[in-house]
C-alpha cells in the first residue's frame, strides 16, 4: 500500500537494506543456506566450549579473581571517600532508591486509604455509594514507573 503524500517508512533506504539482509540470510536462498550452516556450526562450537571442563575451570577461576579484586578495590575507594567526608557511590544510589520508593508508597497509600474509608463506612452501617461491580480501589491509568 502506498500513500502519495507520505511514503510508508518501510519504503526507506534503511528498511530496504534490512529486508535485503533478511532475504540474503533466509534459509531458502543460496546465501541463506550457507549462513544457516555457519550458524549451526557456530552454535555447536559455542555449546562445546561452554560445556568443556577446561573452559569452566578457567572462566570460574577468572571470575573468582575479578570478584576478589573488586571486593578489595571497593573497600579502598569507600574508605578513602569516607576519610574525605564525601558521599560514596553506594550512598548516592541508596538515596536515589529511597526517593523512588517514596513515590510508590504515596501511590499505595491512596489505595489503602480508600480501603480504610470503605471499612469505616461498613462499621458505621452506612451503605457505601453504589459503584461498578468492582469495589475499591478505583482504577487508574497504568503506572508509568518502569525502573
Amino acid at each position: 500500500m502506498s500513500h502519495p503524500e507520505r511514503p510508508p517508512p518501510s519504503q526507506g533506504l534503511l528498511a530496504r537494506g534490512l529486508k535485503l539482509l533478511g532475504h540474503l540470510t533466509h534459509p531458502d536462498t543460496r546465501t541463506g543456506k550457507v549462513f544457516t550452516r555457519a550458524e549451526e556450526g557456530l552454535t555447536r562450537a559455542a555449546a562445546k566450549v561452554t560445556e568443556s571442563p577446561a573452559y569452566l575451570r578457567v572462566s570460574g577461576s577468572l571470575m573468582r579473581q575479578s570478584f576478589n579484586a573488586r571486593i578489595r578495590r571497593n573497600g579502598l575507594v569507600e574508605g578513602a571517600l569516607r576519610t574525605l567526608r564525601l558521599p560514596t557511590t553506594s550512598e548516592v544510589e541508596n538515596l536515589r532508591d529511597q526517593l523512588r520508593r517514596m513515590n510508590d508508597q504515596v501511590e499505595a497509600l491512596g489505595t489503602q486509604l480508600e480501603l480504610v474509608v470503605d471499612l469505616l463506612h461498613r462499621q458505621e452501617g452506612v451503605e457505601p455509594e453504589p459503584e461498578s461491580p468492582e469495589p475499591t480501589p478505583k482504577e487508574r491509568a497504568p503506572s508509568k514507573r518502569r525502573r
Partner: peptide, 10 residues
Amino acid sequence: SATPHTVVYT
C-alpha cells in the same frame, strides 16, 4: 503493562 492497574501495597 497496559492493562489498568493500581498499586495496593509497597
